[in-house]
Every structure is written in C-alpha cells, then in structure tokens.
Design a protein around this nucleic acid. Structure first.
Lengths: 214, 214
DNA sequence: GAACAATACGAACGGTCGTACTACTAACAA
DNA sequence: TTGTTAGTAGTACGACCGTTCGTATTGTTC
C-alpha cells in the first residue's frame, strides 16, 4: 500500500497549478517568453518558490511540454478511441484536431506547432521534447492510415507516410492561418482538401460524411 | 539631380550591415530574441549607436521584416519572372521556394513562417507586417494560379485560393519538418504532393517535368 | 523526542534588457 | 561663417531575468 506523502502532494498540486497557467502563457508568448517570476506572480506564489519547484527554467519548459502533451491526449487522442480503428478513427482524429485548434484549447493555437517553430533550429532538450511529441502524433496518424489500408478502406493508397505528411501540412496551415487572419475559413479549406484527398484514394464518401468531413 | 547626403549614406550603410546580421539571428532566435546590444556587438558597433539608428526595438524588428522581404523577392519572386505567366511560372515559384527554404537562405528556414508563428497571437505592428508579407506571397501565388486557369492550363480547377492554400500548406510543412528532423525528405514529399495535385487538376505532366516538379 | 525531506519564502546576486541623455564629429545648408 | 542635421560613442537608469542562499514551515521516519 502506497502512503501519500503530504509534502509531495502539496508540491504536486502547486506544480499542477503552475503548469496550467504556464501552458497557456507559453502558447501565446512562447516557451522562451515564460518567466519564473511572471509565472509566480500569476499564481500568487513567490519567485523562489516556483524556481525550487522546477529546479531550472529549462526543466520548467520540459514540464510545460509534458503538461501540454497530456492535454492534447485528453482532447484529441482519447475521444477518437470511441471510433473503430481505420478510416473512421482517422477522420475522427482529423475532426478532433481541427476542433482542438479552432476551439483554442491553448489560446495561442496548437501548442506544439508554436513550440516547434520556436525551437526549430535551436538544439537542446526542449527542442528534442517538442520534436518527440510531434513525431508521436505523426506516428499515431501514420499507424491509423496504415490500418485503414490493411482494412482496404483506402484502396488506392500505398504510402501511409505521404498521406500523413499531407494531412499534417493541411491541418497545421489551418491552425496558423486562422490565428494570423483571425478567421475560421482556413479550417474549412483544410477539411475540404483532406476530404477530397481521401475520396480520391478510394475512401467511402458516406463514411466521411458520417465523420463530419464530407 | 539628386545630391547624395554623406551622413545619410553612412547611416544607410550601417543600417544595411546591421540588418543583414539581424535577419540571420532573428530567423534562428526569433524577432523577440533580437537584442540591440547583441546586434551591436556582432557588428562591432556601440549599443547606443544601433539604438539611435533604428529608434526603438519595434522599429528595428519592422526593418528586419522589410529586409527579409527584399531578400525573399530577390531569391524567389524575381528569378521566377523568367518563366512565362501561368503554370510554368507557378511551378517555378514552387521550385524556387523549396530551394529558398532548403538552401537556408535564412539559417532558421523561411523567415516569415518563423516570424508568423512567433507573432501569431500577439497583436502589434510586427505581427501586421509579417501577416502582410505572407498575404502578399499568398496573393501572388493565387494570381499565378488564376492566370493558369484563364490559360486553360489547369482545366479541372476553379477555386484558385483553395489550391494556393494547399500549396502553402505543403511547402510550409516541408520547411518546418526539414528543420525539426534535419532531413531533406520533407521537400521531396511536398514536391510529390504538389505535382500529383497539379496533374490531377489537368496540368500537362511534360510542363511539370520541365519545371523539375515531375 | 530527534533527524530528515519537501515546500515555500524573502533577499540578494550578477547579468542583460530597452531606453534616455550627453557629448562629439562630420556633412550639409544658409 | 554660422546653424542644423545625422551618425556614433559613452554613460547611466530602472526593470526584469535566472539563480542561489539562508530560513521557516510542514510532513515523514526512526
């Protein structure tokens, strides 16, 4: 039987509060724009307390990436699991991702796309963590496509990675354009492009319509 | 007859030197990561001298965006003008853009995509300038597509903006993925996707092959 | 009880940031 | 000539940065 350590529980709660604030500000001002002092102020704690909670700024950034990943899983991955694997889950993933982006789960749009652009060309642990998270999402999408191919739901497709690349491109463009132009139109464009592409690959239009992509 | 003002000429030269350094560091560390002191040090000038040259940090950032725009025009837009308007110039623009990105004209990849992600959700003059530059590029691409439609070079297409959206999505994804994964493969994926899309819209495959997109 | 561990705080550290002000030089205009 | 303007350096300011130190508090363990 595991006893709860009241001290650790208190610290974990403080970290939770801090991270839920940090994730939001980081999605707007960037992970580099995060400041320990600013974060402390926004949650009513002392600067040194927050610093002690995470050890260093870089570890705070890593914790923020991990927290964002959990939110992403809960918002996009988990809800899609109600759909059976294959084309249905694939369309659900696309729909849920577009909702995740347009619904501003993070006020600055997709957290990982923002972080990736920020650390694109800056080596370090943070960049590696962001790249790993994106690679995970890419891999999950690719696996879903591969399963759909095995199920003969995309009879004209053989390169799963290529389709994943195109879907990620279209969804990412919708995210950034909707932010930059403050418009919902880009999401419709992404939906249309992905839907048309899937139909071209032999997907059942009725299934896409069910999933909201028609 | 226009007299040259030696003072202004000297200042313009200093600005030129400063901007050519600033553009490169900004593409890696972001426009917010620019610092007047750091810029001064890297060009062997005094901090106050650089500050006086641009007036404020925000105006320095705006000048950097303008300088990057000029480099972009010289690297992508101008060379494409040797091709006749329509599908040929369109494929040239895509090719030149991919070369501009993969050749690391800016060490951090496409300057404007990096800046757009940084100022996505932060109102201000810098964001407006970046958004305007991207809108300009989008507009130029859309106009090229529209001309190709008029020339019956894309007989199956009617929505020029939709195709521009998809092309921008694919090229942007190639840019960010190649940076994050340090790979040239994403450029091949973007090329393949755009080429296939154009063929599907009725473009002449021979013309695409001429342009290097086959 | 004592010893230890995990938070939390206040204060201070050295550093960098953007900005403002002064002083000086050089180029131009009257 | 005198006056004005543009660039440049030097200096100082206040604000914030991440980090460290000493210390108090609380919870666990022996």
């Amino acid at each position: 039987m595991q006893q709860v350590d009241g001290r650790r529980a208190r610290g974990d709660e403080s970290r939770r509060v801090a991270l839920s604030s940090a994730v939001n500000t980081a999605s707007v001002h960037g992970l580099e724009g995060l400041s320990i002092g600013g974060l402390a102020g926004s949650i009513g704690a002392s600067k040194s307390g927050v610093a002690a909670l995470f050890g260093s700024k870089e570890q705070l950034q890593l914790a923020v990436v991990a927290a964002a990943r959990e939110i992403f899983v809960a918002t996009v991955i988990e809800p899609a699991r109600v759909q059976p694997r294959g084309i249905r889950r694939l369309t659900a993933l696309v729909q849920l991702w577009l909702d995740y982006s347009s619904g501003r789960t993070f006020p600055g749009g997709c957290f990982f796309l923002a972080a990736a652009a920020e650390y694109d060309s800056q080596p370090g642990l943070v960049r590696d963590a962001v790249a790993a998270a994106l690679a995970e999402w890419d891999g999950y999408l690719t696996a879903s496509i591969r399963f759909a191919i095995e199920q003969r739901e995309l009879p004209l497709l053989d390169d799963a990675e290529q389709l994943a690349f195109e879907m990620l491109a279209l969804t990412a463009e919708a995210n950034s354009r909707s932010l930059l132009q403050d418009s919902e139109v880009p999401y419709a464009r992404a939906r249309a492009a992905i839907s048309a592409r899937l139909v071209m690959l032999g997907a059942d239009p009725a299934v896409l319509r069910e999933g909201g992509l028609g």
